[in-house]
Amino acid sequence: MARSVSTRSKVLNTAVAGTLGFLMVFPILWILILSLKTEEDAIRAPLEVLFNSGWTFDSYGAVQARSDYFKHFFNSVIISVGSTFLGLMIAIPAAWAMAFVPGKRTKDVLMWMLSTKMLPPVGVLVPIYLIFRDTGLLDSRLGLTLVLMLINMPIIIWMLYTYFREIPGEILEAARMDGASLRSEILYVLTPMAVPGIASTVLLNIILAWNEAFWTLNLTAAKAAPLTAFIASYSSPEGLFYAKLSAASIMAIAPILILGWFSQKQLVRGLTFGAVK
C-alpha cells in the first residue's frame, strides 16, 4: 500500500534527485547550448556563454556543409534498421521454435548463442577485416549491416524468446486446431500477439546498432561510415571548433536519445536477457 508521504520530504527528495539528474544530463544540455552559439561565443567562460551571447543555427548548416551529415545519418539508419529487421526475420522463427517446441537441448542452444555475444570483437577483427577486404565488403553498408545483424542476433533471439514464453501455448494450439498452417500460425497469431515485445526488441536493437562503435570504426572509411565514425572524424583538430562539434554531436545522438527514452523499460529486460524484470 502506498503510504502518504509528507510534502517536505518529497520536496527534499526532488531537490536531491533533481540535482544529481541534472548533473548526469548536463553534458548533453551543454552541447545543445553550445551548438546554438557562434564559435567565438562557444569558447568563452560558461557564465558568459549562458547569459551574454546570442543564439544561432549556423553550426548545424556548417556541419552538413563540411561533412555531409545526412549521408552518414542515412548510413546509420540503413545499417541499424536493416540489421535489426534482417535479424528479426531469422530470429522470430528461431525464438518460436525454442519457446514453443522446447527440447532437451534448447537451453544449451540458447546458452551457446549467448556465448557468441561474449566473443570479444577484437578476437576476430583481423580475419573479418581480411575477409571483408577480399570480398569488397569493406566500407560497404551491406557488410556492416551483416556484421551488426550477427553480433546482435543473440540479443534479438533472447528477447523474443522471453516475450514468446509469456504467450500461452494453448493459443497456438488453438490456431493449429483451427486449421492454421505453421506460416499462418506465426504470421496471424503469434506475431500480432507479440507486437509489444517485438517492438521493444526492435527499438533496443536499433539503439545498440546505432551506437556500436568498434566494427563501425574499423570496417568503414568514407563511403559507408555511419554517425559513430562521422563523429570520430571530429576528434582532432576540428574538435576545437566547439559549436560545430556540438551541433554534430547533437545530430548524432538526438534520434537515439528519443528512441531510448521510449524503451527504457525494455532495455533492462533485453540487456539482462530476462534475468531482471
Binding site: 518529497k10 539528474g21 576545437l240 566547439y242 545522438i253
Partner: peptide, 30 residues
C-alpha cells in the same frame, strides 16, 4: 516518492543513449 519522477529518471538515464564516440569527444573537449 518525489515530484517529476519520470523526468528525473529520464535525465539520469540519458547518457546511456549517447554513442561512445560522442561522449568521449564531449568530455575531452568541452
Amino acid at each position: 516518492p518525489m515530484f517529476g519522477q519520470g523526468i528525473i529518471r529520464i535525465m539520469v538515464i540519458a547518457p546511456f543513449f549517447v554513442m561512445p564516440t560522442v561522449s568521449a569527444l564531449i568530455w575531452k573537449n568541452m
